[in-house]
């Protein structure tokens, strides 16, 4: 028993099949950022970061004393109190206010210096990977030399000789991070240069600059996003370390690392004084690292 079929010409049938199978172009799979909510780790990290960003933005409107105002009366009992929720430091300055205002500094200096390091590192890596030959040799050797330095040693020598300032910290981050970024970008570039779409660009007589910036650089984005987050966390640690070593943003600006350093001699008597800024720093770094890990995991699932 077969059901009856409407008689159709072969041409009709073929046309029907073509119409039904008409060019299906898949919907785009959601981008990395759109899928972010599916990673709990990434979201936890993002929340920590956003918390500190919010705190930094709201610093001027929060009902807090000035971060540099000294409350001499509180110096005798620097622990937490109604007037100073997290206590005061050795000079009687409100710890909470200094942490809140310190967030502004760290959230400004760290991203600015990492972005600057990226600009330099990407340029170096693209040139080395794209040009090859002696350009590659020169840039790679230079990177090797700088990367041979233990990072902290490099920072200490650099900042100690040129002096501590926000600008010099940015320069130090560029000097120490750009070679590492350039290595990553060079590696990716070497892979992309061989791709056919780069050959196609050559066959259109595109300039070297076009090929590096328009054809290659956008494709480095994926692997670099994770590194960017990790580097933000790492730079935050570095800025804190410099502050702790007395080479950070000069006082009286509230610098988290500097706050820990100032409170360390009092650790035996008032341990909380050093703990609060330390915890603030840890939570921000943790945010960056969690976000990096989540992003990395999402990227691998592709």
């Amino acid at each position: 028993m077969k059901p009856p079929f409407p008689a159709r010409s072969a041409a009709d049938a073929a046309a029907g099949a073509v119409a039904r199978a008409a060019e299906q172009i898949d919907r785009p799979s959601p981008s990395l950022l759109a899928r972010l909510p599916s990673s709990r780790i990434a979201m936890a990290g993002l929340c920590l970061i956003l918390f500190w960003v919010l705190v930094a933005l709201l610093a001027p409107v929060l009902p807090l004393p000035s971060p540099t105002a000294q409350d001499y009366l509180a110096m005798g009992h620097p622990g937490p109190s109604a007037a100073h929720l997290l206590g005061v430091d050795t000079l009687g300055r409100d710890t909470l206010a200094r942490i809140v205002w310190g967030a502004r500094i760290v959230l400004l200096v760290a991203p600015v210096s990492v972005v600057a390091a990226y600009a330099v590192g990407c340029a170096m890596g693209l040139l080395a990977g794209y040009c090859g030959g002696w350009v590659d040799l020169l840039i790679s050797r230079l990177a090797d030399i700088i990367l041979a330095f233990p990072v902290v040693v490099l920072y200490v020598i650099l900042i100690a000789s040129v002096g501590a300032s926000a600008l010099n910290i940015v320069v130090a981050v560029i000097l120490s991070s750009a070679p590492a970024i350039s290595r990553i970008v060079r590696g990716i570039t070497l892979g992309i240069v061989r791709k056919d779409f780069v050959a196609a660009a050559h066959l259109r007589r595109e300039s070297a600059l076009h090929i590096m910036l328009i054809e290659i650089l956008p494709n480095c984005r994926g692997p670099l996003i994770t590194d960017f987050c990790l580097r933000l966390g790492y730079t935050t640690i570095m800025i804190g370390t410099l502050g702790f070593l007395g080479l950070g943003i000069p006082p009286p600006a509230p610098d988290w690392g500097g706050m820990v350093q100032e409170a360390t001699p009092m650790l035996i008597v008032f341990p909380l004084m050093a703990l609060f800024p330390a915890l603030a720093l840890i939570s921000l770094v943790l945010g960056f690292n969690l976000l990096a890990d989540g992003l990395n995991e999402l990227a691998q699932k592709d």
Binding site: I237, G240, G257, V260, L267, P271, A278, L279, L281, I282
Partner: peptide, 13 residues
């Protein structure tokens, strides 16, 4: 995520 000086201070405390 715990820088050495922060960790040092916490452990010492």
């Amino acid at each position: 995520s715990m820088p050495e000086y922060a960790l040092g201070v916490i452990l010492a405390a």
